[in-house]
Design a protein around this nucleic acid. Structure first.
Ligand SMILES: [Zn+2]
Ligand SMILES: [Zn+2]
Ligand SMILES: [Zn+2]
Ligand SMILES: [Zn+2]
Lengths: 447, 447
DNA sequence: TAAGCAGGTCACAAGGTCAT
DNA sequence: ATGACCTTGTGACCTGCTTA
């Protein structure tokens, strides 16, 4: 039975946790004769603790300046094997609630997350990839990063460390008042989400071990560099998640409708229209009776999955959701692989989802895009975005590359000529899908 | 326990501040009988809720509303004596990790620091001098100067004093509305970057103590005097930083090679090559046996000074230094004076160093530059930069003004046609110095 | 013009609350 | 005692006004 006690003195730096004196020592935890634990923590000042946190997160220097990288973002699009990409791009600066834009990047066939080297993030594709994910809001990225203490979903950087609400409160309480903890085992209890409350001693120990400290407190909003570091950590976590996922093979039929452009192995996805619900509707993909009769029907095995925070939300409702300012929905192509990330920018992020199918089409003044996704955790998601085509068309680059023929309601094999970042507002999934194409997509919601 | 109150009325009079004690004890750590550590944490009153008026502190009105800085101590620039300047210039926007650029200005021979007149700042020389130091971005100078309140990096003169963004905002908020703060200790809490948020009372107190006041607000751009004062403050800070290093005196020889252009009183600096170390190498200047035999030798007493953060760093190591993204190394010429500034952009800056000699030369695809510097505090620094000549040549302005003859391996007397600031990546000091010229230089490291 | 700061903004985290 | 949720101070960044 070991006892962990610590003093109540105010700015609790680590050196105050020492047993005999207040000077610093690098000595790790040791056990006294009586079994009481003497914990020696090295003093951490503001900077050093930041560095510890950073190093523990394996931060790498950002390899490129923030602004310069978008320049040639889409230069490789001409190399696309499948050029039947349909998307809209516009200058994000011209974005607003009404102005719906859509962006697509093309890359190579390799999966951005699975295949990229952790150490050499200097390929153009990876740079583009990173540039993309910077647009995922910090809160969503933070939620992906586990608590350094217990592995639960972190809620931010607390006392210098990514930590969950629980560990944050636990650490705070133990900073505020006097406590004496004991470990009934070997002082090496594993701390995870489920058992973090079983041993306060080891939990507090771990809090210190991972670097939690009042001296590491950082107020105010993140600097750009910190934001970049957060992004790096997020990326790292994405890779881990992607590496663990075992998506099950799925079958779906692909058919050439003959309506699409020559280079497009087109498919027709008949859909039920006008559901005005944000919940994914498998019927959307299975229904074959639509006005525009497809030449062939694609069947997709699709579980019904609700988009978190968007379930059962009609389009007008969606636009007025209090927590959602706007939504972005952009795509990134790398060969024929599809990749999709969806987030409500609050707590839930579905990233590293393989897109098994996607469709884009026009409908009067609207442009639509739909996708089916295999998420990293084995679920399937469906997303449909409707864009105000009139607004999109006002941003030049877009329709230069898009077949705007409404008569055919399909996209032809078009080349992309815009490299700007754009965001597409996801307004609803109500639409018809008349074409299918393979590409990588990324999508998310800004809140 | 003291309470600090002050009214909301705009010009917050100091004498309206009141203090009152309440709250927390400052119990230090204690050791239990069994040797277990008992650590007492005081409750930290994030926001004082219960305050009781008691003893009032009397503050006197701050005597100065406007912060008058020291008189300008500028040096005077004379006409050019030596035009044998060799350098590279390029648009910094074209810079990248591979693209090394280099820029030089000419100055006169008189010592900027030692010989300058304090009282008559209106000579042509002084004007030039001012024009010169204005080329050190004010923002960079400001960043060197610590916040008078907490010591953090200041962002400018706020409410009359150099202050960081945090203390600026803190003071503003407390001017805007009524607050009541309490100190849980002795009203003398130390305010630094780490703990500035632990006692609002003492922080505000210090704001006043250092002279922050709405009456001291200064609008608009800096006057010349203010700009000069900023520079003085900057220099002062530099000296403090530089004073922490204790370089030992060192010898080096200087010789006239006769290989340089007509207007250049050329010298040859034999060097040991390929040391690949960022530390200044006196042998570089002492060695007289080189391919290009010098015609005469000059002996100078030179202390060996290591560039902070770059000591003993080989070129490959340097490029992978965790804290350094890239480095800039640029020079600015004004007349024939040499000026050099070296910084890791974090904590250490060696600026206003007189360059007593400099050399540039080509070596295959590389361009090199070496310099010896008399720093403002009387030390001497040595720096050598190697640039990828191919990349430099791709940025136009550079070689227009440079003799690129590789056969002679020297620079001729060329005229400078670019005044832009350029940044060069310092990759190593490994090189041979075959030419010497006098010019002003600025160099530094981006981190 | 451009430089430079006051003030505003709002992303963030500390600390408080309270149902469990 | 815990932790999801809330309130509030903080400060990095931006905008607009002012002045050289
Ligand atoms: Zn946790
Ligand atoms: Zn335990
Ligand atoms: Zn400060
Ligand atoms: Zn205090």
């Amino acid at each position: 039975m070991n006892e962990l006690k610590y003093p109540e003195s105010r700015p609790c730096s680590f050196n105050q946790l020492q047993c005999q004196e207040y000077g610093n020592s690098d000595t790790p935890s040791s056990i006294s004769d009586q079994g009481a634990v003497l914990i020696n923590h090295s003093h951490m000042n503001y900077q050093s603790s930041q560095q510890v946190a950073a190093s523990s997160m394996q931060y790498e220097m950002h390899p490129y300046g923030d602004q310069k990288l978008n320049a040639d973002a889409c230069s490789f699009l001409t190399e696309l094997e499948h050029n039947d990409l349909s998307f809209f791009t516009s200058d994000p600066r011209s974005m607003n609630g009404e102005n719906v834009t859509f962006e697509a990047y093309a890359g190579n066939e390799s999966s951005q997350f699975e295949n990229k080297s952790q150490d050499s993030p200097h390929t153009l594709e990876e740079l583009r990839w990173r540039d993309y994910f910077r647009n995922i809001p910090a809160r969503a990225q933070i939620a992906i990063i586990p608590c350094k203490v217990c592995g639960d979903k972190s809620s931010g950087i607390h006392y210098g460390v990514f930590a969950c609400e629980g560990c944050k409160g636990f650490f705070r309480r133990n900073q505020e008042s006097f406590h004496t903890f004991c470990c009934s085992k070997e002082e090496d209890c594993e701390i995870d989400r489920t058992n973090r409350n079983r041993c306060q001693y080891c939990r507090l120990l771990k809090c210190f071990d991972v670097g939690m400290s009042r001296d590491a407190v950082k107020f105010g909003r993140m600097s750009k560099e910190q934001r970049s570091n957060l992004y790096e950590e997020f990326l790292k976590q994405q890779k881990i998640i992607a590496g663990n996922s075992q998506p099950e093979p799925h079958f779906y039929e692909q058919s050439n409708s003959g309506m699409l452009g020559p280079a497009c192995s087109a498919n027709v996805l008949p859909t039920s229209s006008s559901s005005h619900s944000m919940v994914a509707n498998p019927a959307f993909y299975n229904n074959s009776s639509v006005d525009g009769t497809p030449s062939s029907v694609v069947k997709l095995e699709v579980p019904e999955v609700h988009f978190p925070n968007f379930s059962q939300v009609s389009m007008p409702e969606f636009q007025n959701l209090p927590n959602i300012k706007d939504a972005f929905f952009d795509s990134q192509q790398s060969g024929c692989r599809d990749f999709f990330s969806f987030s409500d920018n609050a707590t839930n992020v579905f990233s590293k989802s393989e897109m098994t199918s996607a469709a884009s089409w026009h409908e009067g003044s609207s442009a639509h895009s739909a996708a089916t996704l295999d998420t990293a955790d084995g679920n399937k998601l469906h997303g449909i975005a409707t864009f105000d085509r009139a607004n999109v068309s006002s941003s030049t680059e877009v329709f230069d590359a898009v077949d705007t023929s409404l008569s055919s309601n399909v996209y032809t094999n078009v080349s992309i000529n815009s490299s700007e970042n754009g965001y597409g507002h996801v307004l609803s999934h109500d639409s018809n899908a008349l074409g299918i194409y393979d590409h990588e997509m990324l999508g998310g919601f800004h809140s």
